[in-house]
Amino acid sequence: MRERIDIDIKVPNQTRYLSLIGKIGEDVARTIKRFDGDREKLAYNVNVVLTEAMANAILHANRDTLDPEVHVRISVLNRVLTIEVFDQGQGFDIDALPAHNPDSCHESGRGIYIMRSLMDRISYKKSKNGYVLVMVKSLSS
């Protein structure tokens, strides 16, 4: 039977919810059927990318928004994991960001690099009420 998971969550725009959403993401990764890779590593990585994307939305994108919330969607279909984090901000061109130099000793600027490293592809595009960061990872070996 084909596996389809769809989880839709909305939380207030506060970093106290990072842990909750990260844990939900970990549980999804642990529950997925027919995954031959390192399941604990996948769970941890899902927690990381969810935390990074949500922190971007909460601390940057939604900063000047009245009564903001963060909307997260986690889905699995056809052995592809898709994570979407919706914000209500003004957006930015993710491809125009300078490439992170992993040998740099800057305090910030690692979030996008981490998300790109742990997922197969990421994009940031216009959505209904703001922007959405979409992260995709194949679950096939």
Partner: peptide, 16 residues
């Protein structure tokens, strides 16, 4: 058990 880029950034700040 878990660290993100903000946690790493705080440690880098302390190191510098």
């Amino acid at each position: 058990r878990f660290v993100d880029s903000s946690g790493l950034g705080a440690l880098v700040s302390g190191f510098k």
